[in-house]
Amino acid sequence: MIFEQLSGNLLQGVILGGVYGMATMGLSLIFGVLKVVNVGHGAFIMVGAYVALTLFQTFGVAPPLAVPAAMVIGMALGMVFYYSAIRKLLKGPELASLLATFSCGVILEEVCKQLFTSEARGYNWELGKLDLGFTVLPHAKLLAFGGSALIGILLYLWFHKTRAGMAMRCVVESDEGARVCGIDVDWEYALSFSIGIGLTVVSGVLLTMFIPVGINPYMGGSYTLKAFVIAVLGGLASPYGAFFGGLVFGLIENGSYTLFAQIPGLEPFAMTRFFSFAMLLVILLLRPTGLLKAK
């Protein structure tokens, strides 16, 4: 019985973890290139959720088709925030960029509150379900997982097979070196910030395919915290590391629930959260480069 439940949870965990991983890639990309932690990360996921919701409800656009729109909106937002605020803070203390990204998130939340009210919304897009006996997987979830994996692969290819992607990797390795090679570092910063935000907004669309309800302006907070843990699992500065970090996170979160549930007197769900943050500390201490890379 427990094993059936555990295997069901683990499978669900992998599927959800893939989407979480996708939702963290933008954070890692921005940190990798600009060394800025986007504390307002969750707010951009929230924007993506509203993009999917609005397109579906007003124009009947199926959520997967909202992805390009989300990418464009995200990249535009990224450019606006980069040139109006982030760019001038890159050389400043940590404090300034942390507060600035947090404030960007607050602006988005408050604007969305004015546009959509703070009511929790949702949409209904039924595609049927896959019943495996020990657990049930709705097709929309599988699609979200497939989409996440696909975007992960595309990002990998872009980084390794295109000039633009390689230029960006150069900047990650060394600003100075890239500059010497004639790369416009400032533009690379702007581009990676906006791609990072674009990816995050897209992940918001995919997340609604997973959970199409409870969409509200303040939904981002818990995703920001999850994204931190996942990013650290993946090495913080590596976007596809983040994808695998997501898978691991999903497995651990869902798996540890079943284990904690065996111990009387505990609230297993809260304990899984405790566990994931404890894990964050351990990894930061022992393997700050993440689970994948060797030291």
Binding site: V37, F228, V229, A231, L236, R273, L280, L281
Partner: peptide
Amino acid sequence: YFAIATIGVNEG
């Protein structure tokens, strides 16, 4: 890394 670790402490 310090900033993220301390967030982890608070939430954890």
